[in-house]
């Protein structure tokens, strides 16, 4: 389960090579390097403000990095419209606050990008949307509008919406932290299923149970750096750095 598929020429799904980012004069990413193999499941954790969201958002260019290189499926990210479009087609993203389009029905949320960006016909797009809505277990909500759904349902729609583009990589930025506790489970279950289907995933989350269960690798970030990385057992049970020990203490006492 924890061995990423190492078939023929192994182009990493994502490569970050000494990536730096500043917000004004604040240095928020300080030389992050990382290679993610196809099919690998990565969980990123770390204290608030450590740069977790920023890394995720640089990978699909919602934020721009100032230095270093980011390659997605072997293509270097740039502002060149065609490159950008190609990368965003292959990278799906799920946000903490769902960000569904409230003026479109659940079904239209799911078919919009496949039709407009992938050029799918409406019938095909709808069939595909229903398939993914079934996978996230809410096909019966297809004709409702997002504001009529619970948070957990909205987040599952958001996952289905991203999957409808059939991306090779999925990014999650704290997908369960805006949810009431009783809804966290239903979203995590969907994510576990997705992980088991072989999707390349990068998740920012503090759900340690989830991390232990699906992560191939955990990255611990602090102050814009990857401080430690390794399989869950190593990170959780044998933390090496003081910073990670402090962080683990903190979240274990919270939950």
């Amino acid at each position: 389960m924890s061995t990423p598929s190492t078939s023929s020429p192994p182009t990493p799904a994502i490569v970050l090579d000494d990536v730096h980012k500043w917000y004004g004069r604040v240095h928020v990413l300080r030389g992050v390097s990382l290679a993610v193999a196809a099919g690998e499941r990565i969980v990123i954790c770390g204290p608030s403000g450590s740069g977790k969201s920023t890394i995720i958002r640089c990978i699909n260019r919602l934020e721009r990095h100032e230095q270093g290189r980011i390659l997605v499926e072997g293509t270097e990210i740039s502002d060149e419209p065609r490159t950008l479009a190609a990368i965003r087609r292959e990278v799906g993203m799920v946000f903490q606050s769902f960000n569904l389009f409230p003026h479109l029905s659940v079904l239209d949320n799911c078919t919009l990008a496949p039709i407009r960006v992938r050029g799918l016909g409406r019938a095909d797009a709808e069939a595909r949307a229903m398939e993914y809505l079934k996978r996230v277990r809410i096909p019966e909500q297809a004709h409702k509008y997002p504001p009529q759904l619970s948070g957990g349902q909205q987040q599952r729609v958001a996952i289905a919406r991203a999957l409808c583009m059939q991306p090779k990589i999925m990014l999650f930025d704290e997908p369960t932290s805006a949810l009431d506790p009783e809804m966290v489970r239903e979203v995590l279950d969907v994510m576990i299923e997705l992980a088991e289907s072989g999707m390349t995933m990068l998740c920012v989350t503090h759900e340690m149970g989830f991390a232990r269960r699906v992560a191939d690798r955990i990255l611990f970030m602090d102050r814009g750096e990857i401080v430690e990385s390794g399989p869950p057992e190593t990170i959780f049970d044998h933390p090496r750095s003081e910073r990670l020990r402090g962080f683990l203490n903190q979240i274990l006492h919270q939950t």
């Binding site: 699909n60 919602l62 965003r88 946000f95 960000n99 389009f101 990008a113 991203a162």
Partner: peptide, 15 residues
């Protein structure tokens, strides 16, 4: 309009 709407649309690859 919340920022998230722009971001979600961009992340889906819309021009």
């Amino acid at each position: 309009l919340p920022r998230g709407q722009y971001e979600a649309a961009a992340a889906l690859g819309l021009s």
